[in-house]
Design a protein around this nucleic acid. Structure first.
Lengths: 212, 212
DNA sequence: GTCTATAGTTAGATAGAC
DNA sequence: GTCTATCTAACTATAGAC
């Protein structure tokens, strides 16, 4: 048990395995995004990546294990876009608008997170802990961000950082549902920007790089 | 085809059938609320109501048909609580807070709608049209409600009725996800009330009847 | 690391008797 | 209106060969 991993590295089989894992994760993201977790199947993932099911399950312990790997990978990419844990409050807030704009270009991924966060509210769901921690972390950091704005005098009077964090996350989630139901009916980044401007006096970007 | 229904009525079997349908709908609501639509099974519904599956399917055309019946029934009950299409803007807005407070007492139903509205963002989902119409209707009526407040001077300066409608719905939906994930961490009615008070100067209730 | 074969489960829906 | 019996299909996961 102790040095299984290092032994793999020594054998030199790790690089190939890493590529296989990456292909599986790509396909899994696509499948889960199209069908949701419960309806999406390992069978379909295996088919897309050109493997048998047992072949795939050699790399991941189970369907739920595969899901968790997909989620963590996505989060890494999102958090690279929004430096929520940094010291620049204005950058964090504008990062949220950028994220909303970016999300509008990947509806499948948005749908996956939307369906999963709903499914995962059940305590028995394999991703329940993952989402509970994710929301805790985000809420905490966003509250801290609004506190930064508060001390720099960029918060509108009467705005409480904890409530601002809670409602901002709620608005982002809620906008996604409405956007997914009718994608032509609303501009997520613009709506989020309008909402955030009720909380802060900060100048806000539009989420479109060329206008920044 | 023409007079099948009236013949049923003539035979007098309709009343009994109505009771059976009601029991099935009750059980179906419970099952879907516990497991979601995809994971919930007709088999389980039939078991709870003490019937065989074909017996149940005699009353409803299919699983998705059953779902639609459950949803319509729930909506009828919710809209009885919130008179969104009335002429009293203040009553409508306070009705939303009451609804949030009421929802906090039926987590299973909230979970059902939460999961379903996410699942149903996919255009192939059996409830897609249902939810698309439901959101259109709600947004339209809520916008009209905020317009009423606007003309009576109860809207805060700069608040746009259309945006207010959109973001209020988003906040309500988003709060539900966070509440479901950690029910002890937030008071949906209180948070919604705080949010609404950023939109209107109206005096707002707390959602608790005794304090009104 | 990948396969074939298969176990074991669960599901939605229909046929046809009563 | 309700049943028994059954069909058909899909899924996760494991055993064991290569």
């Amino acid at each position: 048990m102790v040095d299984t991993t290092s032994e793999k590295s020594r054998r030199g089989s790790y690089a190939k395995s890493k590529n296989t894992r990456a292909s599986i994760l790509d396909a899994a993201l696509a499948v889960f995004a199209e069908a949701g977790y419960h309806k999406g199947s390992i069978r379909e993932v295996a088919k897309r990546v050109g493997m048998s099911e047992p072949g795939l399950l050699h790399h991941f312990p189970s369907k739920s294990g595969l899901l968790e790997a997909v989620l963590t990978l996505r989060d890494d990419k999102s958090y690279a876009l929004v430096p929520l844990d940094g010291d620049d409050g204005a950058a964090s807030i504008n990062g949220l608008i950028d994220l909303a704009a970016h999300n509008a270009s990947i509806p499948g991924v948005v749908e996956l997170f939307c369906i999963l966060s709903a499914e995962a509210t059940s305590t028995e769901h394999p991703a329940h802990e993952y989402f509970a921690n994710r929301y805790r972390w985000t809420r905490e950091n966003l509250r801290r961000t609004f506190e930064l704005l508060e001390s720099s005098g960029d918060l509108r009077p009467g705005v409480r950082p904890d409530r601002a964090a809670l409602s901002t996350i709620a608005v982002m989630d809620g906008l996604q549902v409405q956007w997914l139901l009718d994608r032509s009916s609303l501009d997520m980044a613009a709506e989020l920007r309008a909402f955030l401007s009720t909380l802060t006096t900060l100048p806000l970007g539009t989420g479109r790089p060329e206008t920044r």
